[in-house]
């Protein structure tokens, strides 16, 4: 069998998803044996690939260089996977998007003056620039999911995206619902797939795998208000990983 050529690229992010990948337990060497890693921006000296079977893109597109690179990757790759919430939704870098018009002012506040490297006033999900074949959500991604997605792709199978909320995983794990303890949680409106580690440590889900397509946002907002959270903070909770208001 010819090993599929796999490449990994990094845009604007904390690079945590790649560290999560590197700690993907004992299965990592096994996965590596079955793929040909042509490019890994963090590890190789020289970019080697001119075509890829699977290209992983991590991070948000937040400047011209990022935008050029994702277009180049798209041209060379059969499948493009948006790797992590920054790549899928904009993620934490997109928190600056609502202030797009104030970009010059806050640039000055942070740097005090002009610098040579220009950034966009907004951080975009990769799909805003190129077609993306699969999205792996999570801030960070789940290391288990990486192994599963690569395995599915090796078998020529489409990986299964979970289409249910985090609550399903809490039930499966036997985790007591945080709402029962008076802790407001984003689990009911958030994509599952992480295996709900946060509620297991008695911490509310904050929505890092992004908004569920058919989430009942009105009811979630009512629940949160009922726990004394003001509307402005609810708006923040709904947009923490997308940089935009969820209108559903």
């Amino acid at each position: 069998m010819v090993k599929p050529k796999v490449a990994f690229f990094g845009m604007t992010s904390c690079k945590g998803c790649y560290f999560q990948l590197l700690l993907a337990n004992e299965k990592l060497p096994h996965v590596l044996e079955n793929i040909d890693v042509t490019d890994f921006w963090m590890l190789n000296e020289e970019p080697k690939g001119d075509c890829y079977d699977i290209a992983f893109i991590d991070g948000a597109v937040s400047n011209h260089e990022n935008a050029e690179l994702v277009r180049e990757v798209r041209e060379k790759a059969k499948y493009v996977i948006a790797f992590g919430t920054c790549a899928c939704l904009g993620g934490i870098p997109a928190l600056r998007n609502p202030d797009e018009k104030k970009h010059n002012a806050y640039h000055k506040m942070v740097y005090g003056k002009e610098i040579a490297i220009k950034s966009y006033p907004h951080a975009d999900p990769v799909h805003k620039h190129i077609h993306v074949d699969y999205k792996m959500f999570g801030c960070p991604i789940s290391e288990r999911e990486v192994v599963e997605v690569v395995r599915d792709m090796l078998l020529g199978k489409k990986p299964r995206e979970p289409d249910y909320p985090v609550c399903v995983e809490c039930k499966k794990n036997g985790t007591r619902c945080l709402f029962k303890d008076g802790v407001p949680c984003m689990g009911p409106v958030t994509n599952a797939g992480c295996d709900a580690p946060c509620p297991a440590s008695r911490t509310a889900c904050d929505g890092c795998r992004g908004p569920l397509d058919d989430g009942n946002w009105a009811e979630e907002a009512k629940l949160l208000e009922g726990h004394g959270i003001d509307k402005k903070h609810i708006a923040f909770m709904f947009s923490k990983y997308t940089g935009e208001k969820v209108e559903k």
Binding site: T12, E65, L95, R96, D99, Y106, S119, D206, F236
Partner: peptide
């Protein structure tokens, strides 16, 4: 030449308990 991240701006206006998670 890592793109600017502007964390010191993005944190502004956030509630004290959300600051560490950003």
């Amino acid at each position: 030449y890592e793109p600017s991240r502007y964390f010191e701006h993005m944190i502004l206006g956030k509630r004290y308990d959300e600051v560490p998670s950003v």
